[in-house]
Design a protein around this nucleic acid. Structure first.
Length: 278
DNA sequence: AGCTCAACCTGGCTGC
DNA sequence: TGCAGCCAGGTTGAGC
């Protein structure tokens, strides 16, 4: 479920309600996520206040008194703020209490992560999981003025298919599997083109396609995802109509050519052979 | 350094 | 209805 837009919407939905609140308890129901949830997390977090929530790529960074609580939703994670009396669901992995509210991570596939990074261990930007991430798509580092050049420079010399290169997130973060296919379609770029062949004009086009795709999705998430606060319904999978993703053999919305599905780096890619050029 | 690929884990869907 | 097989929004880490 979570690509960057969902993570951003989660952040925006939760932050106003727990900002300034102190942790009053932690219950780990099943800590066997991507990495084990630290067993002493309750001891660490108890009494610490959340001053803000930042998002870096698909990571949520809760700024606490003595460090950062890092949460990643993986493939299937959902984070919601509920009442402690609300019924616990199967696959709820951890609860973090803030007085009369509780933050619950629901994650069937356990690809998510809940970690602690103390201030003593260094700046959060230098944390091993954060340090090598590409630039944020909505930051000054990816402004309309420089985003094209940024992509162009990063892609230089790379032989890897542009789809896999973009998905890897080393140039720009947050372009997951769905929005990767969508952005390449919007930019008219064939997913199998070697990244190094990206010209500056096409890089500029790709950069604006990425930003537009993601911002539309954030808006859609903001309006169609139920709130993350006191919401019992499963938000499920809310995408606006996609242009190519999950549309194998269906007609291209522009030229009617059947959409092709291929596998690249163990992930599905969807594209239009006529609209997208190498 | 760049690239490929297995692995982590559960559930839902398809087809026999 | 049951069961095997395949697929799924992410990311690391091993190995070449």
């Amino acid at each position: 479920m979570p690509e960057l837009p969902e993570v951003e919407v989660t952040k925006q939905g939760i932050e106003p309600f727990i900002q300034g609140k102190a942790v009053t308890g932690v219950i780990i129901h099943d800590g066997r996520l991507r990495w084990p949830i630290p067993k002493n997390l309750e001891k660490i977090l108890l009494g610490q206040k959340v001053s803000q929530i930042k998002r870096r790529g698909k990571y949520l960074l809760f700024r606490m008194d003595d460090g950062h609580l890092i949460i990643h939703l993986g493939m299937t994670g959902v984070l919601r703020l509920l009442k402690p009396s609300d019924e616990l669901k199967k696959h709820d992995r951890i609860e973090i209490f803030f007085g009369k509210q509780v933050l619950r991570l629901h994650d069937p596939r356990k690809f998510g992560a809940v970690l602690w990074a103390s201030d003593e261990s260094g700046e959060i930007e230098k944390h091993p999981l954060i340090a090598k991430l590409g630039v944020e798509p909505f930051s000054d580092d990816f402004s309309d003025a420089c985003a094209g050049q940024h992509l162009h420079l990063h892609a230089k010399g790379r032989q890897i298919a542009i789809k896999q290169w973009l998905l890897a997130g080393q140039a720009v973060v947050g372009v997951g599997n769905i929005y990767c296919s969508e952005s390449l379609f919007s930019a008219g770029i064939h997913p199998e083109m070697p990244a190094g062949k990206l010209t500056l004009p096409r890089a500029k086009k790709l950069a604006s396609a990425i930003k537009e795709t993601l911002s539309k999705a954030i808006k859609a998430g903001g309006s169609s995802l139920k709130d993350f606060v006191n919401s019992h319904g499963d938000p499920g999978h809310f995408m606006l109509q996609t242009k190519v993703y999950d549309r194998a053999a269906l007609p291209c919305r522009i030229c009617k050519t059947p959409i092709k599905q291929i596998v690249q780096g163990q992930r599905s890619t969807y594209f239009c052979q006529k609209c997208q050029k190498r």
